[in-house]
Design a protein around this nucleic acid. Structure first.
Lengths: 262, 262
DNA sequence: TCTTGTTATATTATAAGTTATAGTATAATA
DNA sequence: TATTATACTATAACTTATAATATAACAAGA
């Protein structure tokens, strides 16, 4: 029996200043707590940190940068206290922004490890279950439709696009595009067939998610790409599709939709 | 004078297996050294690591995954030794790929710190002949597919989207999306029919562009919207489609693709 | 002037983790 | 059967990181 490995990628990030560690998630959390409580000692207690560790962190951050992030007062009304400076508040906001982006990118890596694809999907999400970052290799013009040949890492993908769309997109050779394929526009087969479909993908099944009528079949294809194919449950059983099965996925050129960022 | 802060972003990544730490840069370096030296102890020495730490790492990795990455032999020709299995070699290759990608991502984050700027200047062109700016009105979840009800000016458009796509898009009610429909996913009729298609548009033909086999039929529908439908020339003549004809265009919910800007 | 609660600093104590060391097990080989 | 160089295991010694403790400085307020 094959062992099912549920590998995922995880990561952390932090800011450095002249190569030296400045602040990561822990110190930012501390800063947030100082902002809330108005005191280093209280902030430390809230997050189960020793006072010394907290004080040292604040001191390092204040010293590393010219303008300090935390303004500290000892003695006075309630014995003193600490508040964030404007720079400190700004830093937290900046960190949060970066954190969100970082998490988004980690998710994208898991999904499809292609830097162009990740760039394309950074602030764009589509309902297409499959998408490839691709480059236009050639455009063969027809009367109404044009055949666009795309290169996506090691694959060649064909897209049949109406001429008016090509004009509207101002599509040209070497353009970078995202090729979208809906999961139910793909057809599965266990053998290599002589179909009229222009697009063919080869791979092994990595998962089958069964629904009431249909099943989503996930396929690992070349270059760490995944493919999601929607198949009826009948087909799953009749074709005997299971984890590890070697399969072919076909798709008409007219089912491929292109998106280009200008 | 403003202090010049040379802030940069740095980070690490690693693989987890069922949420538990599996391997990061250190363990991969160890694997590479084992591959080179053919021994755990030599590999540890090369990188200034204690033997126990090295052995423990290897042991954990071997135990976490079913198929071990390192094959160890004690006793024998030269007292024994360790070699990477095929899975181990493959893992290293995979890690290297991800490492390169991760570094690119960190650069991307550094460059794109001003995400809002990019978002606002984002212009998108698609090969879909028809697109509608729409708002999500409701999402009816099914086992595999969900039906998304969209409101585009005075139209209601239905899109059938796989549940996984909805999760990926984090699609929610009131989200602003673009609904794309390819011209050859639309079907024309002169009469109002009882089709299983969820989407129906009504309008008058404003132009017919004839090709060798197919024709593009342009239709003026409500709210100054245009629709482009791809029809065979045979249909054009048999249905007697011409400028001014009053027609209906149908389209399955599963043919509608959604794009969301984040 | 004494109280207060905090910042600030140094010192000590403790815990956690790592390394060094020593020793056992192993199987091919001379 | 002794040799060999490694894998493997256990434990003591050490190092590092963290926590706890003690104590001074501080400035407003009673």
């Amino acid at each position: 029996m094959k062992h099912k490995n549920d590998f995922k990628i995880d990561g952390r990030f932090w800011f450095t200043n002249n190569g030296k560690y400045f602040a990561g998630s822990g110190r930012v959390e501390l800063l947030k707590n100082i902002k809330e409580t108005g005191s280093i000692s209280k902030a430390a207690k809230v997050m189960g940190m020793s006072y010394k560790a907290a004080w040292d962190s604040v001191d390092v951050m204040n010293k590393i940068t010219g303008q300090s992030l935390v303004s500290r007062v000892s003695g006075g009304k309630n014995g003193g206290g600490s508040v964030l400076t404007d720079a400190g508040i700004k830093f937290i906001e900046q960190y949060d922004k970066y954190e969100k982006l970082f998490e988004e990118l980690l998710l994208l890596i898991d999904e499809n490890s292609d830097i162009d694809h990740i760039k394309n999907n950074l602030n764009l999400k589509t309902s297409a279950d499959n998408s490839f970052a691709a480059t236009v290799k050639s455009i063969s013009e027809g009367a109404v439709y044009s055949m666009v040949e795309l290169s996506a890492s090691s694959f060649t993908i064909y897209a049949s696009i109406s001429k008016s769309s090509i004009e509207k997109m101002q599509l040209q050779v070497n353009d970078k595009v995202e090729a979208l394929i809906k999961s139910n526009d793909l057809v599965l087969s266990m053998d290599t067939l002589n179909l009229s479909c222009r697009n063919k993908f080869e791979g092994t099944v990595s998962a089958v998610k069964k629904g009431a009528v249909n099943s989503e079949v996930y396929i690992n294809i070349e270059d760490n790409h995944k493919l999601c194919v929607m198949v009826t449950n009948d087909s799953v059983s009749s074709l005997n599709i299971d984890y590890g099965s070697h399969v072919y996925a076909y798709c008409k050129a007219s089912s491929v939709l292109l998106v280009k960022r200008v």
